[in-house]
Nucleic acid binder design. Structure first.
Lengths: 226, 226
DNA sequence: ACCTGAACACCGTTCAAGT
DNA sequence: ACCTGAACACCGTTCAAGT
């Protein structure tokens, strides 16, 4: 919490500082995408070629650094939403929006953690609220008005649907990267206004053994982290 | 990893050791239920009135201690499953099983983390596999055979359904404890063999503001934990 | 202004010394 | 055998000293 900068306008950074900031973001971008939020700030700083202290001079804490990456990634999320909104078929738009959104989160573990609300900073979350929430509402409204989506569904439902699917994605992303699509489509069948006969699911269920492997103990004795 | 005890049979504990073990379990039971896995082992040991080292003499690590509580809690889960299996209406059985299971997880944060595979030890997880997995399969088979559940659904699907709903539960348990039921019933409508017209949902959607509050930054600057 | 790295707090885990 | 608490490793965060 620095109170020096009058909210909104901040003095330009010195050239070396600006460069370090970029380096930190670049390092964090790659490390977060691969390993999610559990990379060390020391690792990020080291890869960026600066000291840890520098990271803390630019970002209030680890969450804020991830937060700064959020804007780039939300741009992709917003693009997916816009694609949905221009789709001539509102139902198809809704489906592809969720598909694209989850696919992005499959590619970027850090983004997945952000979207599911695991770890976020303050600023970009507001942006999420002000930009993504209205888009969600619009996507839902369009499908509902077309009579293809049940009429008791709202924009906020899309958020929680993603939270749920994201948890499945997080568990299965290693061994069965597309398993989440099975549950997405199961849920979509529950979202239809006039269901008719169930749609064939795009992905097979796991066997019992596969499930056990996926759900198996992630912490091997003696390797537990803080 | 101690290799002293021949797997299966272990010598009885000395009386003080056995008592300490019970005290540790009692302390952990309460602390985990209230605060989930992020309680300190120091706290558990302190509440139990023993040193930390004693905890490590009884349990390989923090996960194993939680694991030891698992059997008690799985007993309740198993009971819920058995209730489902004796329900004259297979669909109603399936629904109440999921309702009861999630309700238990709402009451016990530690149990929720176990079921969603967040943090588990080894031993009880096997038990889960050998006891709960067959029950899941039976519940699903019964509903499928009765023609009320779509025929491409398997027992392992119940596991992942719980993972997803659990994530929603974890996010909303504070402010909106029963929100998960909304998504459970949305999903149930997707699981029906012959959907017909959608069932009214038992819980209202959150408003945009409520959603934002729920998804809001859980880490206040400067309070981040390890 | 900004940079650095040593220092601090916290928490999981280990181990030497005691009974 | 078992108990204890100091010690160690790790990681997020801070801050004194340097440019």
């Amino acid at each position: 919490m620095t109170e020096s900068a009058p909210a909104g306008s901040q003095r330009a950074l010195r050239r070396d500082a600006a460069r370090n900031r970029e380096r930190l973001l670049a390092a964090a971008r790659q490390l977060f995408a691969d390993h999610g939020f559990d990379v060390t700030l020391d690792e990020v700083a080291h890869r960026a070629g600066v000291g840890v202290g520098t990271a803390y001079r630019r970002f209030a804490n680890k969450g804020e650094l991830l937060d700064a990456l959020f804007s780039e990634q939300t741009a992709e999320m917003a693009a997916a939403a816009d694609t949905a909104l221009t789709d001539p078929d509102p139902w198809h738009g809704l489906v592809t929006y969720l598909e694209m959104s989850l696919a992005l989160q499959l590619r970027d573990k850090g983004l997945a953690q952000i979207v599911s609300g695991d770890r976020v900073g303050v600023e970009q979350h507001d942006w999420n609220r002000q930009v993504m929430a209205p888009k969600n509402r619009a996507i839902v409204a369009r499908a509902r008005d077309a009579g293809v989506l049940r009429d008791d569904v709202t924009g906020t439902d899309l958020t929680f649907v993603q939270v749920g699917l994201n948890a499945i994605l997080a568990r299965s992303r290693g061994a069965h990267p597309d398993l989440y699509r099975r549950y997405l489509h199961l849920l979509l069948d529950g979202l239809r206004a006039e269901p008719g006969t169930p749609t064939p699911l795009p992905v097979a269920a796991l066997t019992s053994d596969e499930t056990h492997a996926v759900m198996g103990p992630p912490i091997t004795p003696g390797t537990a982290r803080g």
